[in-house]
């Protein structure tokens, strides 16, 4: 379980997040909406533990552990993973090696890459010359290998062509154990599968495409550094599309 209490975050001299409260229970996936510059990426990077995002108030707990000031790699070990929007290129480090790093040598890189239609990239330097869509597939491949309990997705569908959007969407759904109709067999009731679902997800989306593939429990709107609305994600998305963020968050206040 992830619990964020009254979180304040500064980047440089600028306060980006103020008074963030958020709870994600095991098995839950939340969608994070918000206009550009509202602090969505900041929230994800803060949960992951990027040090330039300075926590000036509040607490973050994960699995009952106070991780507010925990180093990034210890959070990863505790079960937090992230799909980045613009990850850096590391020259000389092959994608294959990166998959091994993620899985602590435990994963079958070939099989996973095949699933992500990424086999041809295994022997290329990680992120070197990757297109927007290739970066997303690479990030999902790494998350698949890492298999964390809480997954943070920063705009997983941006830059992805229509041909690959379903691959991205369905993979996220699978990673977050949202694809229960696939797993459920006749002798295993649906509600049991739901109970066994433990993976937690927090997904930033602009386009809402991801909602066509991933069922989510809650939507959240981040507006001017605050989480202003908690509701059904489809409804929120429809509302934003119709009347815009400013009007949409008004209903919450």
């Amino acid at each position: 379980m992830l619990i964020i209490e009254d979180l304040k975050v500064t980047l440089g001299d600028k306060e980006i997040l103020r008074h963030i409260d958020l709870e994600i229970f095991p098995g839950e996936t939340h969608i994070l909406f918000g206009p550009n510059g509202s602090g969505k990426t900041t929230l994800l990077m803060t949960i992951m533990g990027y040090p330039q995002y300075r926590v000036t108030g509040g607490k973050i707990y994960f699995k009952g552990v106070d991780i507010t000031h925990m180093p990034i790699n210890e959070r990863a070990r505790l079960g937090i993973g992230m799909s980045f929007q613009r990850p850096p290129t590391i020259h000389g480090l092959k994608t294959r090696q990166m998959v091994r790093i993620c899985s602590r040598n435990g994963a079958d890189a070939e099989a996973m890459a095949e699933k992500m239609k990424f086999s041809d990239f295994l022997d290329r330097d990680i992120n070197a010359g990757f297109s927007g869509g290739e970066i997303k597939r690479s990030e999902l491949l790494q998350l698949m290998a890492q298999n964390p309990d809480l997954m943070l997705f920063d705009e997983p569908e941006s830059g992805v062509d229509l041909e690959n959007i379903s691959l991205i969407g369905n993979t996220i759904s699978e990673l977050l154990e949202r694809d229960i109709h696939v797993h459920t067999s006749p002798n295993q009731p649906r509600n049991k599968a739901l109970q066994e679902r433990k993976k937690m997800g927090l997904i930033i989306t602009h386009t809402g495409f991801i909602l066509d593939y991933v069922t989510a429990d809650k939507g959240q709107v981040l507006y001017e550094g605050m989480l202003s609305c908690k509701s059904n994600p489809q409804e929120i998305f429809r509302c934003i599309k119709r009347i815009g963020y400013e009007e949409c968050v008004r209903c919450a206040t």
Partner: peptide, 12 residues
């Protein structure tokens, strides 16, 4: 680059 690898579980 260091932080990216740390987010995958490596120490600094």
């Amino acid at each position: 680059e260091i932080l990216y690898l740390m987010s995958r579980g490596l120490s600094e």
